[in-house]
């Protein structure tokens, strides 16, 4: 079994060096995520205190809201710069892309705009969970090896760990699309879309995938 994922190894000497390199890359990816999380931590704190103040001001006994609402600073600035008509006001306060944590450390503006054009994200941008990152790396590896089935396995394992991560569902949709399973590609992209909150780049990618899959179905 060719695999990067660390718990099933049958490594020869050659493979172990390769794994070492991958591992080093992986560690650097991890540290980026950690930095990203650290950088963002105060923001999250602030939003939390804002909520609790909010609650303290009111006498009612409402439970803490169960929305994901941490604002992502870089992205919200970006959208604020857009013409007001395209983005309804409520949108701005919508859930923080917990997942774009990696993006948040980048300086807002140009980098963020570039980001939006790039649909394919690196594993460490998709998730902050090392296990999910490892599985995504494995999926990438398997895809490069041409074994999509194993890539699907890895993504499904990742989804079991982080089922509300829209990027994982998108990745699965792409793999199905590659495999000419148009209907499933559409359904999975829709699922990704439903979880996409305010991630226009992902929404665009999903819409594109759905369009192409539908086209393929009608061509058939």
């Amino acid at each position: 079994m060719r695999s990067l994922i660390v718990n099933k190894v049958r490594v020869g000497k050659l493979k172990s060096t390769r794994l070492l390199i991958v591992n080093l890359l992986f560690c650097s990816a991890c540290s980026t995520v950690h930095q990203a999380q650290r950088a963002e931590a105060p923001v999250v704190e602030r939003s939390k205190t804002a909520i609790s103040k909010d609650a303290a001001a009111k006498p009612a006994r409402t439970a803490p809201p169960s929305f994901r609402r941490e604002p992502a600073p870089a992205a919200s600035k970006d959208t604020a710069a857009k013409p007001a008509g395209t983005v309804p006001p409520s949108f701005r306060r919508e859930p923080a892309p917990a997942i774009t944590k990696g993006v948040a450390v980048k300086p807002p503006g140009t980098a963020a705009r570039e980001e939006r054009q790039r649909i394919v994200k690196s594993p460490s941008e998709i998730s902050g969970n090392p296990a999910v990152i490892a599985l995504l790396n494995e999926a990438d590896f398997e895809t490069r090896q041409g074994s999509d089935e194993d890539a699907v396995n890895a993504i499904e394992r990742a989804i079991r760990l982080e089922p509300k991560n829209p990027y994982l569902w998108y990745r699965l949709a792409v793999l199905r699309f590659k495999n000419h399973q148009w209907q499933q590609a559409v359904a999975l992209a829709e699922k990704s879309h439903s979880l996409s909150g305010r991630r226009p780049e992902l929404q665009k990618a999903n819409a594109e995938l759905i369009r192409r899959a539908r086209q393929a179905t009608s061509n058939r």
Partner: peptide, 29 residues
């Protein structure tokens, strides 16, 4: 805990006091 992520196409009303049975409850959203 349940994390309700509002799907695209939804908005939130803030701090609404709503009659609820015998009482009046403030919903933060």
């Amino acid at each position: 805990r349940i994390e309700l992520s509002p799907p695209p196409g939804t908005g939130l009303l803030d701090n609404v006091n709503l009659p609820f049975g015998q009482s009046c409850i403030t919903f933060s959203s």
